[in-house]
Computed example of a mutant assay.
Amino acid sequence: MSAIAWIATGSLAAWGWLLLGQGFFWRTDQRLPKAHARVQPGDWPRVTIVVPARDEAEVLPLSLPSLLSQDYPGEAEVVLVDDGSSDGTGKLAGELASRYGGLPLTVASPGEPEPGWTGKLWALRHGIGLARARGPEFLLLTDADIAHEPDSLRRLVAAAVGGDLDLVSQMARLRVASFWERLVVPAFVYFFSQLYPFRWINRRRPLATAAAGGCVLLRTSMAERARVPDSIRQAVIDDVSLARAVRRAGGRIWLGLAERVDSIRPYPRLADLWRMVSRSAYAQLRHNPLVLAGTVAGLAVVYLAPPVALVAGVVGGDTAAAWTGGIAWAVMAGTYLPMLRYYRQPLWLAPTLPFTALLYLLMTVDSAVQHYRGRGAAWKGRTYARPRPAPDR
């Protein structure tokens, strides 16, 4: 067999393992457990919703009213932490609360982060500190660009109480409207679930640990036991770091795809999506050049080799390369179909996954380049040139 045929065979073997041995990552049926959605009237615990917000005036009119209008049977309140905004985020939050009513809102500002803290975790530290003074049993940590259906909080708490869980997290359904969002966003969640299979996370004896930072319901007692967020204050990938801190403290975690929680932040251009991915991609690789090289090689063999082998085999008359490349590409596309259905996207996008993987490969390399130029993990005017990666799981 030719070299390209051998590479395609290796890719096909990899896809056989990914299909059956990687926690069935490609399935999209990990949703909030309906069997746990039973809490007796009067037993609903007190919840404080903590929202870190920096320059979020554009999205706040859509997201904050959805939190204020939560149909929650117990006591709940919202604490919005204005993290040094320059666009009037804090003032707008107060105006929205006056206009829409609903849950009580507190707007606070902690000032600039102390050395050794990332901005979001500094804001969460301040918000969680204010929340603890009220004595809530649960904290809902949610980003300012996340909109919740009216029953979202009730369903989250019911799942946590019914399942005796310390952390319940949902991967918010990201916005998919522009051409580039359709091409890149479903793949983002697909790759995340491949790296952190939800089934492995949700096992009694977990094989992986992660959370989705846009929507995290956390027991206050577990936050104290895990010393959150102080123990992860430098983490750029704060959601995974949070989950690992909770797991190390003996907590039980559940992660799944959201049905009632949506991100409303637009990423209309490729450049917007590029910045979203590249700002933290190299941190995920622990800023290790060898891990970067292995990741690039792995992406090339697993995602790029199948279509290259198919085309080269057809053009060059290499039957083995064409068949193995074609089958590997078909398996790859098949595993992508459930995610496209979840995002309500046309299924013909499935064969484009190799091109999207190439984009992610380039974004990851660019993330490393920006890191060594001292511009890594840039977000809204702040740059964390040498941040600490997420701790071991």
Rank of each mutant, 00 (worst) to 15 (best):
A76E: 07
H126L: 11
A93K: 00
D143E: 13
V78S: 05
L165S: 02
K91E: 15
L140V: 12
D71L: 10
G119M: 04
R134G: 03
P113A: 02
E114W: 11
G88L: 07
L165W: 06
S98Y: 12
R134I: 03
P115F: 09
D83R: 07
V176E: 13
A159K: 02
V107H: 00
A123K: 05
L130E: 02
A131C: 04
G102I: 00
L103R: 03
G84L: 11
A147V: 11
H126N: 13
R99N: 01
S86G: 15
W180N: 08
W117E: 05
L140K: 06
D143Q: 12
R154P: 11
P136I: 05
E137D: 14
A123N: 10
E95A: 13
D166N: 14
S152D: 03
I146A: 09
G135A: 15
E114N: 13
W180I: 08
G127Q: 07
P104W: 02
T118R: 11
V107Y: 00
F188G: 11
V185Y: 06
M171I: 13
L153R: 06
P104D: 04
W180H: 08
A97E: 00
D151Y: 13
P110G: 09
P186L: 14
A158V: 03
L183R: 10
L96A: 02
G84K: 04
G88D: 08
D166S: 13
S86E: 10
G127A: 15
P115A: 15
T106S: 10
G88T: 09
V168Q: 12
P186V: 10
P150K: 07
K91Q: 14
A133E: 15
G162I: 08
L96M: 05
G135K: 13
T89K: 02
V157T: 05
T89R: 04
L174D: 11
L80T: 08
L92Q: 13
K91D: 12
T118M: 12
A133T: 14
F179S: 09
L183T: 07
